[in-house]
Design a protein around this nucleic acid. Structure first.
Lengths: 119, 119
DNA sequence: TTGACATATTCCTATATAGGAATATATAGT
DNA sequence: ACTATATATTCCTATATAGGAATATGTCAA
């Protein structure tokens, strides 16, 4: 079997750096395709193709306005990624290091309390 | 050009659901390959191959112990993903909705203050 | 050293890109 | 109707999988 389609889910869609760049630009607001072409320095067909993938996974929405097509971010599609990766935050976050220290202390106190029955 | 290699970066590596599952299992602690084989119901060679990809992007580390190889999580490799996706949190988080309300109010108050030169 | 166990690698194939080039479609203006 | 502008689609090709099957490598134990 080959790799899953880029349109299979958001994880596959955003594996491509250009598509992340497109989302980053759209984060600042709605944009026509040509804005993206200019800002990212890509060929127009490639941008349209990337936008199609992003649309298929629900990461962007489109709106017609005259001869332009205005794309806008739909961050909801990225929530599963956020939810998944958030579980690993403790691997690098000082905040969680601190939390771990506190939890360790609680556990130690609890163990000490065992013999003395509370107090 | 084809798609970037799965080993190109963490984004590409974790696009494959099996590899995310492997990381999820390793999050609970170090494991030999056969544990993963049993827990995920995959063929052993496939697991070894997925582990290789995860190793190449730095998401796991290995340690030899007798005839077993113990794999463990290295969450640091996932930080870039977390950092990237975090910027989109406001799209779905109520917390940020609230923050936006506050910011709007501040902006409004500032605008009102314009004519009255401070207060 | 022979055998059992644990893991990695190699070979195979169907499939899906990403980018470039060319072209199609749609809309506005004259 | 014609033209310019904006965007999408199609065709092409090199490349990289993911999984299955077979096999290689490494290590312990008798």
């Amino acid at each position: 079997m080959a790799r899953a389609a880029t349109t299979a889910d958001a994880f596959n869609a955003i594996a491509e750096p250009r598509r992340r760049q497109i989302l980053d630009v759209l984060a600042s607001g709605e944009r026509p395709v040509n804005d993206l072409v200019r800002m990212l320095g890509l060929a127009q067909p490639q941008v349209s193709k990337h936008l199609r993938v992003l649309r298929e996974v629900g990461a962007v929405d489109v709106r017609d306005e005259g001869r332009q097509r205005l794309y806008r971010l739909n961050g909801h599609a990225l929530k599963p990624i956020h939810d998944w990766v958030k579980a690993y935050e403790r691997s690098w976050s000082e905040r969680f290091d601190q939390l771990d220290v506190v939890l360790q202390e609680l556990k130690r106190e609890e163990a000490e309390g065992d013999g003395r029955n509370d107090q």
